[in-house]
């Protein structure tokens, strides 16, 4: 549990950070909240020669409104998300999900950028970002580009980030007024990754679902958008048969690993239940 030696860098701008990354190559890793990277280093599963600490870059922090989108700097902490009125009002599901991440100590340090960029299927934010239709801004030596969250995740810890690129901000469309939402997460204890979790954002009209988006956490090597499940509920009043169909459609795309949280069969089963419960609760808060 003792890391190997490394050099520490603290650039003051994104440009400097990008330059360091491209100069130092694969031996360098950007450091955000450190909740994934530092334990990996302590176990020597990660042995970067250079750590590029992003905490000195003021431009990477903050929450602002840009048109119909909330733009969140990558180094914004989960605690800052929870403290934001903008988030609570415009995107209450983000507030709800952030509260489910670990514990206050972790949330003071953990960042939304680190959470979504690391590609850990256990993290809560990636599936939520897919559900909300967010895009990520990636900046590298060749300039900046935007990638949809839905296109970002390629495998466990494999993402669309190219070597030398840093995820600098997230842009999230504000859901329609009166939308319903829920993030249902089954976990064994505070601080645990989800056994299975489901994010739902929907709109209702006359008791029927008009639009719906469903994301799934930790039931596959990447976060998932459950498109068929979402399609199954459009136009319905979320009756028992529809919920069953939606849960089954969601379970059909799950491929969780067996671990201490339970065998595959259990994790898929409760994944379906999380979808059902999230749909019901989202509908109950929709206006």
């Amino acid at each position: 549990m003792i890391p190997g030696s490394f050099s520490y860098h603290r650039p003051a701008s994104v440009a400097d950070a990008v330059k360091l990354l491209s100069d130092l190559g694969e031996d360098a890793r950007p450091l955000a909240g450190g909740h994934s990277l530092v334990p990996m280093m302590k176990l020597r599963l990660a042995t970067p020669g250079h750590l590029i600490d992003l905490h000195g870059i003021a431009a990477l922090k903050g929450i602002s409104r840009s048109g119909n989108n909330l733009v969140i700097g990558a180094m914004t902490t989960q605690h800052e998300l929870l403290a934001s009125d903008d988030v609570a009002k415009a995107m209450p599901i983000l507030h709800e999900a952030a509260l489910q991440i670990a514990d206050p100590q972790v949330r003071y340090r953990g960042t939304i950028g680190g959470n979504v960029a690391n590609g850990d299927p256990g993290n809560d934010m990636p599936a939520l970002m897919m559900t909300l239709g967010a895009t990520y801004r990636l900046e590298g030596a060749g300039g900046a580009r935007d990638v949809a969250a839905a296109d970002f995740y390629q495998g466990a810890y494999f993402t669309a980030l190219e070597p030398g690129e840093i995820l600098t901000s997230l842009s999230i469309p504000v859901p329609a007024a009166g939308h319903g939402y829920a993030y249902e997460k089954l976990k064994r204890k505070v601080g645990d990754y989800a056994t299975a979790a489901a994010a739902v954002v929907l709109t209702m009209s006359g008791g029927k679902v008009v639009t719906c988006s469903i994301g799934l956490t930790n039931v596959h090597e990447t976060p998932l958008l459950a498109a068929d499940a979402a399609k199954a509920v459009i136009g319905t009043s979320l009756d028992a048969a529809t919920l069953k169909k939606a849960a089954a459609a969601a379970e059909a795309i799950m491929a969780p690993a067996a671990d201490a949280r339970g065998p595959v069969e259990y994790r898929k089963h409760v994944g379906g239940i999380m979808v059902t419960r999230a749909l019901q609760r989202a509908a109950s808060v929709a206006k």
Binding site: L186, R188, T195, R261, G262, P263, Y266, R267, H269, V270
Partner: peptide, 16 residues
């Protein structure tokens, strides 16, 4: 008696 084992017991007993 963690969650998944309780579920497994319920399933084995026909409750799920």
């Amino acid at each position: 008696h963690d969650f998944w084992r309780n579920w497994k017991a319920a399933k084995a007993l026909g409750a799920v």
